[in-house]
């Protein structure tokens, strides 16, 4: 703020502040250690409260750091979940396809006019192949 905009009230406030500061500086040597420690702590708290912007920034940075440290774990978890789901779906699909085929063949064989013994006899199958190729 430039000197042109300074008001007489501001000058009085500043002078009062300087008097108080001088008085406190002179009395600081007479303060005992316990009171000095409490004053130091109060000053720290007052400064922290007076600069909320910095603490929010710190908080945001801390959150960012935490997020960055969580991200690889999340990535691995998602990848593993995808593997588990893929294995499950693949297994279910292959089992279903195999079951459907076996079910169809078994139903056809059991209902067929040809006895099951014909399918169990390996010689009959070979004889049929040979007979049809000759």
């Amino acid at each position: 703020m430039s000197d042109l905009h300074r008001s007489p009230e501001n000058d009085i406030d500043e002078a009062f502040g300087r008097h108080v500061a001088a008085y406190l500086s002179a009395g600081v040597h007479e303060v005992d250690d316990a009171v000095a420690a409490r004053l130091r702590q109060a000053r720290r708290l007052a400064l922290a409260a007076h600069r909320p912007g910095r603490s929010v920034l710190l908080r945001v940075l801390a959150c960012g750091r935490r997020a960055l440290s969580i991200q690889p774990i999340l990535r691995q978890t998602v990848a593993l979940a995808a593997v588990v789901v893929l294995v499950g779906v693949g297994d279910y699909w292959s089992t279903s396809a195999m079951l459907a085929e076996i079910e169809e063949i078994d139903a056809a064989m059991l209902a067929d006019e040809l006895p099951i013994d014909a399918y169990l006899d390996s010689d009959f199958s070979a004889w049929l192949r040979q007979d049809s190729s000759s």
Binding site: A118, Y119, S132
Partner: peptide
């Protein structure tokens, strides 16, 4: 044994139609 029987069933399904339709007679002949 069931697996082998299914394999033979599949093989017999691949036979020419006229033979496949007469498998019962072929079995009796055999």
């Amino acid at each position: 044994a069931r697996r082998r029987a299914r394999d033979r069933y599949r093989a017999m399904q691949a036979l020419p139609a006229e033979r496949r339709n007469n498998l019962h007679e072929e079995w009796e002949r055999y």
